[in-house]
Design a protein around this nucleic acid. Structure first.
Lengths: 208, 208
DNA sequence: GAGTATTCCGAGTAATTGCTTGGATTACAA
DNA sequence: TTGTAATCCAAGCAATTACTCGGAATACTC
């Protein structure tokens, strides 16, 4: 729909630093304020750059936070992909738990930023990287199914995959944004993995 | 946090009509536009009322849509509660399916309004009625558990209840906002009920 | 070192928009 | 009927804010 690519890409080291500073300044401001209160002049100021420079590279405000969102969501996918390696040698539901835990941890480290992006800015949900992260979620749940011997088949596999990935991605947000201690979050995340196993496989992972 | 009660309540029939017109005009404008494009002057115009009258009863723009949101979410809870009666004489997972179906149907009938409220306006999530609707969701999933004979116990019942209700409420939004035909939506909703049964009980409803 | 491209600057503009205000109308009560 | 409260009106204010523009400063190239 909308084009969220930069107006112009920085070509020298100096402007590359400015470009980055602008994006990270936005993150800083989002974490500690609302999206509503975020203004381009503030961003420029925080980035130590003039407003003119800002508009040299970004054609509008949305582009800035779109790029920020892409960065963070890409980071999230990478974290999950890296967690996939150790996960594959665990028991299926604990592997998923491990993947979910790393995702949650990544978001918790920048809770307010992720919260602002995913819960306060409508168009972020439509960005490619966000969709990609959801697709990754589908892959990971597939892992449970293929690695579990006797899977009770569901009548509509694609629909179930879609439903489960939607529920999972939403649930990890709820856990990450929730206001509790790390221990509770950990238990919640493991329980989530267990519930996911129940959904995908049709029985409890600890059941005979 | 913020006080979203009307500035003044209408006392005569005439103003009661204006009050209502303002709220429903907001709904009309939300359905067919974005929240961003919603202005108080537009609302007044659509309601056939002057901007002065609008501010006679509502102290600010947020209050208007907060009241609209409360109305719609209350309607949703009512629909679900009414669906509870026939549901109680069905097999557990089909009872839940029935409840979810009525919830989805209610939202689909005003898709854009619910979408705008719940996905474009950050503060709506914090309104009492929205929280209440989530609480209702918890109750309904409890229904499955208590009516299913041999339930595999989960280690942390409250956490699981919370997780399941979060996932359910998010999932019905995803289904309702999804761009498909009614038949697909119906299948998705039933599948969701089935997955919920799997989560809550620990086995498939159709399994021996 | 001249010439060109890139980067930076920040005062100012244009447009939007939530909301006020002072007064006109209408309903109700005694 | 008369006084009071409720309701309605819309021009316009005040504040915000995304973005432009003309030009200065800095970096690259030959």
């Amino acid at each position: 729909m909308i084009d969220f690519t930069p107006k112009k890409l920085p070509k020298q080291a100096r402007s590359r630093a400015s470009f980055d500073a602008i994006i990270e300044a936005s993150a800083q401001l989002l974490s500690g304020g609302t999206y509503e209160a975020l203004t381009t002049n503030h961003i420029a100021q925080r980035a130590g750059v003039s407003i003119g420079t800002l508009y040299e590279f970004f054609s509008n405000k949305e582009t800035i936070i779109a790029i920020l969102a892409e960065r963070r969501m890409q980071a999230l996918v990478t974290v999950m992909q890296n967690a996939l390696i150790p996960a594959s040698s665990m028991r299926p539901w604990e592997g998923v738990a491990h993947i979910l835990e790393s995702a949650v941890a990544t978001m918790v480290a920048e809770r307010d930023v992720y919260h602002a992006l995913l819960r306060q800015i409508p168009f972020v949900r439509q960005l490619p990287a966000v969709r990609a992260s959801r697709a990754a979620m589908t892959d990971f749940t597939q892992m449970i199914r293929v690695r579990s011997a006797d899977v009770l088949n569901l009548p509509a596999p694609e629909m179930d995959a879609w439903l489960i990935s939607q529920m999972l991605s939403n649930a990890i947000l709820e856990i990450a944004f929730r206001n509790t201690d790390a221990a509770t979050r950990a238990v919640l995340t493991r329980e989530l993995a267990r519930l996911t196993y129940r959904m995908a496989v049709g029985r409890d992972p600890e059941a005979g």
